[in-house]
Structure formats: C-alpha cells, structure tokens
C-alpha cells in the first residue's frame, strides 16, 4: 500500500501537522460514505482534487502507487454491475443483465473506493514515516493515562515502516541467490509455488531477527530507554493551514449532510 512510499517535496500538505493530517484523512474517509448522489460525489472528489493539486505529488506517481489496488476497484465495479438488479435493464448478455440500478451502484462504489485509496496514498506520499509516527504518538498521548503505550506504539510503527524497503531489498537478494541454485518461482501450481517460497522465507526471517538485534543494540548504546525524559527535535504545533483544512472538511461534511437531508 501507499504507506512508506513518501514523496519528498515542499508543499502545504507536507508542512501540515501530521496529527491533523491523520485525523482529517480518517474523517474524510468516513465522510465519503455520506455522499449518496451525483452532487455529493462531485463534492467529495473536488475536495480530494484540491488536496492532490496542493500536495505537489506528480499525478504519474499517484497513479503508479494506485496500480496494485486498481484490481480491487475494477472487481467491485464488476460485481456490483452484475449482481444488483434494480431499476430498468440496460443490456442483456445471456445470463448477465445490467440494470440502471446496478450501473449507478457500481459507479458509486468504485468511485468511493478510489477516493478512499487516493486519500490514503496522499497521506503516505506527503507524510514521512517519522512524521506519521509522531502524529500517531501525539494523537494517542491523551490515552496514556489509561495505560496506552503511545510512545512505544509509535516507535514500533516507525521502525516497521522504516524496514519495509530494507526487507524488500533483502527478499530480492535472497530470491536471486536461490534462483542461482535452480529455484523456480515462476512456474508450477499454487502448492509448488508456496513450497518455493520457504527457501526465501526462512533466510528472510533470520535477517529480520539479525536487523532487530543490531537495531536494539544501536538504540541501547545511544541510551534509548523509552519515553521517560525524552525531548523532541520537532515539537508539533498546529498552524493556520491546519485549521483551514479542518474548516474545509467541516464545510464538506455539512454540505453532504445538507444534500442528504434535502436542505440543499
């Protein structure tokens, strides 16, 4: 997924307080489901469009980041198209018939899903893993008094994110080494392919443990001992732009509610 594929740039979205960005992204994803007609959908997409254009993330990058989930979007579209049988029939192809109801639901679901993915990707592209972990820690901080280990959780998150590219590289290296010994990862049925993964998985786990060991030694030797007494280089402080974003989202939410209740 888009997490961990940070695109370095200097945009309003990049400079935003990560706590605000996280909350806004999550609330936006919920708000998407308030839209149940064309006008609502246009508003939802317009909000996203503005965010994308402010983000400084090249469209090409965004599209390539979404390629893996496109399958899911297309699948959703097709399933809704084929299985929903309300409204007037549009086309009839043998056992499959497409109705107006099916078509509109399919369009709605696929668009919502796409907006969901774009929003997540945008968050990933504009927020470094360090910022993301900081934001999460900031948001969890109030729950610390109830025993939620906010600092530890965010440290785990940032380490996990940091290691995704490293372990990916390692996986490629091991796969090459085993192919050189005649391993075949490309042919065969599900079972043979699954068995072919074992000679990759075991060394990969070994290397993950090795990395964990090294990292913990490195952290310990720099006197890391958890949150107690730790100060920050970057202290999170909301700026005007963060409140503008909240206002924009509130406006979107209000407009969608108004559309739903027929006030608009």
């Amino acid at each position: 997924m888009a997490l961990g594929q940070y695109h370095k740039a200097d945009s309003v979205l990049h400079r935003m307080d990560p706590r605000f960005k996280l909350v806004i992204a999550v609330v936006y994803m919920l708000v998407i489901f308030l839209a149940n007609d064309a006008a609502g959908l246009v508003l939802v997409l317009a909000f996203l469009g503005v965010a994308v254009s402010l983000s400084g993330v090249p469209a090409r990058l965004l599209v390539s980041g979404l390629r893996p989930v496109l399958v899911l979007v297309v699948f959703t579209f097709v399933v809704n198209l084929v299985f929903i049988r309300s409204g007037e029939p549009v086309v009839d192809i043998g056992p499959v018939s497409v109705t107006t109801g099916g078509l509109s639901t399919a369009l709605f679901m696929a668009t919502r899903l796409l907006a969901l993915f774009v929003a997540t990707a945008l968050l990933g592209f504009t927020t470094s893993s360090v910022d993301l972990a900081d934001g999460m820690e900031g948001l969890l901080a109030p729950f610390e008094r109830f025993g939620v280990p906010a600092h530890e959780l965010s440290m785990i998150l940032s380490i996990a994110l940091r290691f995704i590219p490293i372990l990916t590289m390692e996986k490629d290296r091991i796969m090459r080494a085993q192919s050189a010994r005649g391993a075949d990862f490309e042919t065969g049925n599900v079972i043979t392919r699954f068995r072919a993964i074992l000679p990759v998985l075991t060394p990969l786990f070994m290397s993950a443990f090795r990395h964990a060991e090294d990292l913990s030694t490195a952290m310990e030797s720099r006197c890391y001992h958890g949150k107690e007494g730790r100060t920050r280089v970057k202290v999170l402080r909301p700026a005007a732009r963060d409140w503008y974003a909240v206002a924009a989202l509130a406006l979107l939410g209000a407009a969608l509610v108004a559309l739903r209740t027929g006030a608009l």
Binding site: A177, Q178, P199, T202, M206, S207
Partner: peptide
Amino acid sequence: YPEHQLFA
C-alpha cells in the same frame, strides 16, 4: 554473505 541464504 552466502550464509545468509541458508534455510533448511
């Protein structure tokens, strides 16, 4: 570091 690819 070929020893890193041992698995069996």
